[in-house]
Simulated scan of single mutants.
Amino acid sequence: MTDAAPTKSATPGDRVDKSNPRVREMFRQIAPHYDKMNHLLSLNVDKYWRSQAVRRLRIFPNHPILDTCTGTGDLAIAISAKADPTVDVVGSDFCHAMLEIARDKRDPGKPSSRISFLEADSQTLPFADDTFQCVTVAFGLRNVADTDRGLLEMTRVCLPGGQLMVLEFSQPRMIGLKQAYGFYFRNVLPRIGQWFARNDKSAYEYLPESVGQFPDGQAMADRMTAAGLIDVRFTPLTFGVATIYEGTKPGILPSQGLA
């Protein structure tokens, strides 16, 4: 979901409510306008960020890929376009309304037609251990009530030797940009979002709050390491407005089908 960081973090007493019922209802309300608002408010830069994430994925034949918090399916669709036809792509999300839009995006005769979209909570994924060669999440991990539990689940279902990737908003550090960026997303984005989507204004107030309270940079990399990943690294995008985080599950990816 398109949003950005305020210039200061909230105090513990101001923690944003990320309970499942609240977040699910918020996304249900804005689902019909979600894609259009993303592209408008990010000036289409969100498409570039996803393309950069897909470029970094190590995709081999015959092993499935999971995109968690898939929303309306943009990252899953981009992954399917790159993957070999032998690679099953699965998109999971706990908001039914968002998944309905994702399913409608599947194009018969194109790779997206093979994507399976299913309703699931990222804190309790309904998959066996060591299932997917890549597990991804784009702009969704910060909406999971328990970030560490979400990372542990993603790691659990990833194959040994497989890749876990997080694409998420982060806070620019550049003086001037940081202040301008924070002002825009605290004061301008909520008003545009409310006018455009005509939904409960709390949804667009939630966006900068959730980013401001989410770990970024090394703090996020440390969370991934604590979840059991190795070779964790991160790459800021667009002056730090978003960041790609990558880690590997210890072990060796099964050799079947690898080139």
Rank of each mutant, 00 (worst) to 15 (best):
D130S: 15
R149G: 14
L66Q: 02
R156S: 02
F169I: 09
P85I: 03
C134W: 04
I77E: 02
P160L: 11
R103W: 07
T72I: 14
S112T: 02
V157I: 14
P111Q: 07
C69Q: 04
T68N: 00
P64K: 11
S170H: 08
A145Y: 08
G73N: 03
P85T: 06
E100G: 10
I65M: 06
G91M: 09
V137Q: 08
D130G: 12
L141P: 03
V144P: 05
V135M: 09
D130H: 15
V90T: 14
N62T: 14
Q163M: 12
R106D: 01
V137R: 00
H96K: 15
T86M: 09
K105G: 05
S122H: 01
P111Y: 10
D121H: 10
P111F: 09
A81F: 03
V89Q: 00
L125Q: 06
A78H: 02
D148W: 07
G161Y: 06
F139M: 11
D129G: 06
K110L: 08
V90N: 00
D104Q: 13
E100A: 13
S116H: 12
I79D: 03
E119I: 10
D88I: 10
G71Y: 07
G140Q: 02
A102H: 02
N62P: 01
G91S: 08
T68F: 01
D121V: 07
G140L: 00
S80C: 02
R149Y: 03
A76L: 07
I77F: 05
F127C: 10
K105F: 04
T70P: 03
E119C: 08
S80N: 01
I101W: 11
F117S: 06
I115D: 10
L164K: 05
P126D: 02
G150F: 07
V87E: 06
T72M: 07
T68Y: 00
G71D: 06
A138W: 00
D130T: 04
L141M: 15
D93E: 12
D146C: 12
C134T: 12
L99T: 04
V87C: 04
G73L: 03
S122K: 03
G109D: 09
L152F: 07
S170M: 12
G150R: 06
L151G: 08
A120I: 01
C69L: 01
H96W: 14
P126I: 01
